[in-house]
């Protein structure tokens, strides 16, 4: 499994991550980020892409 952590002090809810890994990241009706804290290993590529495009570099990934 991959653990996903978004530093909500940094996140500005730009939603760039949503386009790379929509299964994990979504903007809710108030334009605020919601995300799942875990994802299967096969998603590593998409999750790294999401972490890469985050303007605030708020996304940390950890492999378990």
């Amino acid at each position: 499994m991959i653990k996903i952590d978004v530093d909500m002090n940094k996140c500005q809810h730009y939603g760039q991550c949503v386009f790379e890994a929509p299964e994990v990241f979504q903007l809710n009706a108030d334009d605020k980020l919601e995300y799942q804290a875990e994802a299967p290993d096969e998603m590593l590529g998409d999750l790294e892409a999401a972490a890469d495009v985050c303007p605030m570099q708020a996304i940390t990934l950890m492999r378990e």
């Binding site: 949503v18 386009f19 903007l27 334009d31």
Partner: peptide
């Protein structure tokens, strides 16, 4: 602001 609306233009 209005990020959701701006994102919608992509």
């Amino acid at each position: 602001g209005m990020r959701g609306a701006v994102q919608g233009y992509r």
